[in-house]
Computed example of a mutant assay.
Amino acid sequence: MGASAYESERAEERREERKTVRQVGDLVDRGLADRSEREVLERVAERFSVAITPDLVDLVTPGDPADPIGLQFLPSKRELRILPEERVDPIGDDPHTPVKGITHRYPDRLLLKPVHVCPAYCRFCFRREKVGPGSEVLSSDELAAALAYVRRHEQVWEVILSGGDPLILPPRKLAEITRAIAAIDHVKVLRVHTRVPVMDPGRITAELVEALRGRTTAWIVLHTNHPRELSPRAREAIARLVDAGIPLLSQTVLLRGVNDDAKTLEALFRELVVLRVKPYYLHHGDLAVGTGHFRTSIEDGQAIARTLRRELSGIAQPTYVLDIPGGYGKVPIGPSYLGPEGEDGRRVVEDPAGREHVYPPRGGDGR
Rank of each mutant, 00 (worst) to 15 (best):
E299G: 12
E299C: 00
E299A: 15
E299I: 03
D300S: 14
D300N: 12
G301T: 04
G301C: 05
G301Y: 05
G301P: 12
G301A: 14
Q302V: 03
Q302W: 08
Q302F: 07
Q302G: 06
A303E: 15
A303F: 05
A303R: 15
A303P: 03
A303S: 13
I304Y: 09
I304G: 07
I304Q: 09
I304C: 13
I304E: 12
I304W: 11
I304L: 15
A305W: 03
A305E: 15
A305P: 10
R306L: 14
R306C: 05
R306M: 11
T307H: 04
T307V: 14
L308Y: 05
L308T: 02
R309I: 10
R310W: 03
R310G: 02
R310M: 09
R310P: 02
R310C: 06
R310Y: 03
E311M: 07
E311P: 02
E311S: 10
L312T: 01
L312C: 10
S313Q: 08
S313G: 11
S313P: 13
S313V: 01
S313D: 14
G314T: 11
G314C: 09
G314V: 07
G314I: 08
G314Q: 09
I315A: 15
I315D: 15
I315W: 13
I315F: 14
I315G: 01
A316Q: 04
A316L: 08
A316C: 09
Q317Y: 09
Q317G: 03
P318E: 02
P318A: 02
P318G: 02
P318I: 02
P318W: 00
P318D: 03
T319M: 11
T319H: 13
Y320F: 15
Y320N: 04
Y320H: 00
Y320V: 01
V321S: 03
V321G: 04
V321Y: 07
V321N: 06
V321I: 15
L322H: 09
L322F: 11
L322E: 11
L322G: 01
L322T: 01
L322D: 08
D323S: 01
D323Y: 02
I324D: 05
I324T: 08
I324E: 07
I324M: 09
I324S: 03
I324R: 06
P325G: 04
P325N: 05
G326V: 07
G326Y: 10
G326Q: 06
G327Y: 06
G327F: 09
G327E: 12
Y328T: 00
Y328M: 12
G329E: 13
G329F: 12
G329C: 12
K330W: 11
K330F: 07
K330P: 13
K330V: 06
K330G: 11
K330Q: 14
K330S: 12
